[in-house]
Design a protein around this nucleic acid. Structure first.
Lengths: 146, 146
DNA sequence: GCTCATAGTTAGGTAGCCTAACATTTTCGG
DNA sequence: CCGAAAATGTTAGGCTACCTAACTATGAGC
């Protein structure tokens, strides 16, 4: 037991992982595409839910360039979900903050998505759920490493 | 033990799962964006690797519409990676099949991606890897259910 | 054989991303 | 303390991948 894994084993696991991840992307897409808010919009709103943040932070967190973030944020603003205000401590910067409408929309959409996923998870047995729950932080670890 | 999970527990797991999945989408994107082949192209090639298949099958498997699939397949054809040939049993249909070049490109890209992921997985300890390996089929189960 | 369904392609449009160029503000070395 | 360089956003223009609608051609059924 507990011998160091061979390259072959690692590569086999890597392949399964990639395949599952690819399928999971579809799963994620189908769970999040309910015509309300896109995944990116949800992420943006959830960032702003904690505290107002800069456009450049939004871009970095979303993994996109600043002009693209500006574009998306302006759309959220036009939808009345966020406000764009100059940063009082640095007038180059723009702070993105949630409106009350935005917070409500974000929370409602999150609830609905959670319920949809919970309905899926309900069909697993307890062991499977436990395994899944144990694996989530490991996947996060990988994400952080990469 | 083994009581039925409460709604609260399910919703909490659902939330974690959604979050991790969202992050995993980024992970997947970064692992697959090496400027060679897009994830969609890899998927298309891997489908065609088993046996020639119809454009409509490609579209269905990729979760996109037929015209979009046609577009992508034509690009793969122009790159010399696939051939488009009329189905001998139904001349309305078009069969997409891999060229030798396509097979080599697909295998090489798959190898490189696997190596990259294996390098990540190598940094986990044995327990984590075992948990991860156990979770993959469960996630597939969810994907199949949804 | 005529009608209707099926398989793909073409045409035209949209959304989200990109880079390059710009205006404004801050920072900092001389 | 001032001019150059860096940082923050926005604007402009372009690309790609997706979409729907309309079309052609083939197959299937009464």
């Amino acid at each position: 037991m507990s011998l160091p894994p061979t390259d072959k084993q690692l590569l086999a696991l890597a392949q399964s992982f990639r395949t599952t991840l690819r399928h999971a992307v579809y799963l994620s897409r189908s769970m999040d595409s309910d015509g309300e808010l896109t995944t990116m919009q949800m992420s943006t709103l959830s960032m702003a839910a904690d505290e107002p943040l800069r456009v450049s932070r939004v871009a970095a967190n979303l993994g996109i360039r600043v002009p693209s973030a500006t574009e998306q944020i302006i759309k959220l603003e036009q939808a009345g979900l966020v406000l764009r205000q100059p940063d009082p401590t640095d007038s180059r910067a723009v702070l993105v903050q949630l409106t009350e409408t935005g917070r409500e929309a974000w929370e409602a959409a999150g609830r609905r998505r959670n319920e949809r996923v919970a309905a899926l998870l309900e069909q697993l047995d307890d062991d499977d759920r436990a395994t899944l729950a144990a694996a989530l932080p490991i996947i996060e670890k990988l994400n952080h490493t990469a």
